[in-house]
């Protein structure tokens, strides 16, 4: 096969990966929303010129390895405890930009207490909440946000509220708290949604540095592996099933 030589001229560049995204190959499945959300967060930190000032807290779940992909200092928290870890970091470094990045299991099951109390204290941090209605890392078990009737490894006949309770919208609950200045629900399944999501990320980070209180950004996300769908099917399923129950848009602020 003939060797192909590609010459990239700077003036021809129309897009460049932010240097804040490392060159590590992501472990996320093709089609997963995590990659897109990571990229948006990295871009915003870069555009704000805050790399040196930003400290992230990653959860237990698929995004446990977020620290391999965004080139900032990171703490990897125990399952559910990211908000507590972030509280200490922000209190001890009030001038740093501190965020947590948590899935639905981490934030709204095992870490519900910490999630509510970080918001209630109004810690000047950003909470990113990735809601794909399933436990991806452990192999597709039910999440607190799993929709009624949805099949998972622990709801093989579909989620039955009599057995498993109901899905809940923690963003709506958290919006009631005095300490929270901004609650929004976004998605990244279309280019338009990606652009909106990025603006939300920026606003949340700016709030935290302005000392306005806690900003909470939910992403309704896909887990095509867990949902057992192709990436395209998953995006469609998200639109038809997830968004009616978890509608996108600003909830507060």
């Amino acid at each position: 096969m003939a060797e192909m030589k590609v010459e990239i001229k700077k003036e021809n560049l129309v897009y460049q990966k932010t240097p804040l995204l490392t060159d590590n190959t992501m472990h996320y499945c093709p089609g997963c929303s995590h990659g897109t959300i990571h990229k948006l967060i990295a871009e915003v930190i870069d555009e704000m010129g805050m790399q040196e000032q930003t400290i992230g807290v990653s959860p237990v779940g698929c995004s446990v390895f977020a620290y391999n992909y965004i080139d900032i200092d990171w703490a990897e928290a125990a399952h559910g405890r990211a908000a507590a870890v972030a509280t200490a970091i922000k209190r001890l470094y009030p001038n740093k930009m501190v965020f947590t990045y948590q899935g639905d299991g981490d934030l709204s099951a095992i870490g519900t207490g910490e999630s509510i109390h970080v918001c209630n204290r109004g810690e000047n941090i950003v909470v990113f909440y990735i809601n794909n209605a399933i436990y991806g890392m452990t192999g597709g078990q039910m999440a607190p946000t799993t929709l009624i009737g949805m099949k998972t490894a622990t709801t093989p006949y579909g989620r039955d509220p009599k057995l498993h309770g109901y899905p809940y919208r923690i963003a709506t609950m958290i919006a009631q708290l005095e300490g929270v200045c901004y609650v929004t629900r976004q998605s990244v399944h279309t280019p338009a949604a990606v652009r909106k999501a990025k603006r939300a990320i920026r606003k949340a980070f700016e709030n935290s540095m302005a000392g306005k209180g806690t900003s909470f950004v939910e992403f309704v996300a896909t887990c095509n592996s867990g949902w057992k769908q192709t990436p395209v099917e998953a995006n469609k399923w998200l639109e038809e099933n997830m968004l009616p129950f978890y509608p996108v848009g600003d909830i507060k602020g």
Partner: peptide, 24 residues
């Protein structure tokens, strides 16, 4: 010095984890 009354011992020790991680 920062003093925080956490919502639980679980939260408190994880605050310790975060604070210690800061080199504090």
């Amino acid at each position: 010095m920062v003093v925080v009354q956490a919502e639980s011992e679980v939260a408190a020790i994880n605050m310790i984890y975060g604070g210690a991680g800061c080199g504090k």
